[in-house]
């Protein structure tokens, strides 16, 4: 959080970047988002081996908006994020109860098609996790697995997705080289491209900038802003300044007696300017957390 000042200083051109001029923080919610609910959590609780990690979360997330989940470590933000694409299934001893609705469909239902769900919901992790293969193969694996086998289509999809994340010009000559040779920021953008190549509706970002240096972090952040309107983005961040810069909606999570809870949720300007809950104002002003 201490480097937020320097981050924005390092990117004086951000406001002038093409395509972003019209964007203003705080007012964006009205401008960009249709007020239709895309995703909804009802009474969601997550238990890790008898320890209650998250209790009774009720949250609605609007289509095409960027929602930031903020709060101190260990308050269940990441668990919440991982339950949205049911990645919690992979974690031993983790049980999720309650309802999660995407477009009115409960994804917690027993016979949910998880592969379809995960195609619908893309996810980026804190550390860039490129597979130890070539750049091309990283993008081809999900495409092929979802039934795209034609070489021309594959190539064009790969190009489009790399262009979307602004990586095409940087890597077009070395698509067959190992992806691990890319810089951290490039790797994270490749991960984003890999998630977007399946054209998901929802993108889950788990602190996508925290493992990156300020410059790469700025590039990735700009990229996330450019997704507004096309994807529903849910981003976990420890960086309040980042949430202030990019989010339309903010949800504050807090661990009360070791149990994660949703404290407050609302449009970014309301949360930042007139928080309702005392924890929120304390967190935003920096006296707690």
């Amino acid at each position: 959080m201490d480097d937020t000042q320097s981050t924005s200083e390092l990117r004086p051109t951000q406001e002038k970047a093409p395509g972003f001029q019209s964007w203003r923080p705080y007012q964006s919610a009205q401008q960009c988002c249709e007020p239709s609910t895309h995703f909804q959590a009802e009474n969601l609780s997550i238990v890790y081996r008898k320890h209650l990690a998250l209790q009774n979360v009720n949250l609605e997330i609007n289509k095409g908006c960027i929602t930031a989940l903020v709060g101190p470590s260990g308050c269940g933000k990441t668990s919440f994020l991982m339950s949205i694409n049911r990645l919690t299934d992979l974690i031993l001893g983790c049980q999720v109860s309650g309802r999660l609705l995407i477009n009115e469909t409960d994804i917690m239902a027993p016979f949910t098609d998880l592969l379809h769900l995960r195609r619908q919901v893309g996810m980026i992790f804190q550390k860039p996790t490129v597979f130890p293969f070539s750049i091309r193969k990283n993008l081809e694996i999900p495409l092929r697995e979802h039934g795209m086998c034609d070489h021309a289509t594959l190539a064009s999809s790969i190009e489009t997705s790399l262009q979307q994340v602004g990586l095409w010009d940087e890597v077009k000559d070395r698509l067959n080289q190992p992806a691990q040779g890319l810089s951290g920021g490039q790797q994270q953008r490749l991960c984003l491209a890999r998630a977007m190549v399946l054209s998901p509706e929802i993108l889950l970002l788990d602190e996508p900038c925290s493992a990156l240096d300020p410059i790469s972090s700025g590039i990735v952040e700009d990229l996330i802003v450019s997704l507004r309107g096309r994807y529903t983005v849910i981003i976990v961040t420890h960086n309040l300044a980042q949430a202030r810069r990019i989010a339309d909606y903010v949800a504050l999570f807090w661990a009360v007696d070791g149990i994660g809870q949703l404290i407050e949720h609302g449009p970014a300007h309301t949360i930042f300017q007139s928080p309702q809950h005392e924890l929120t104002s304390a967190y935003i002003s920096g006296t707690r957390g």
Binding site: N85, L87, L90, L114, L115, H116, L117, R118, R119, V121, G122, M123, F125, T129, F131, I141, P142, E145, H146, C191, R194, A195, L198, L204
Partner: peptide, 8 residues
């Protein structure tokens, strides 16, 4: 995890 998140 990330391969699973890609719907593999």
């Amino acid at each position: 995890h990330s391969a699973t998140a890609l719907g593999l």
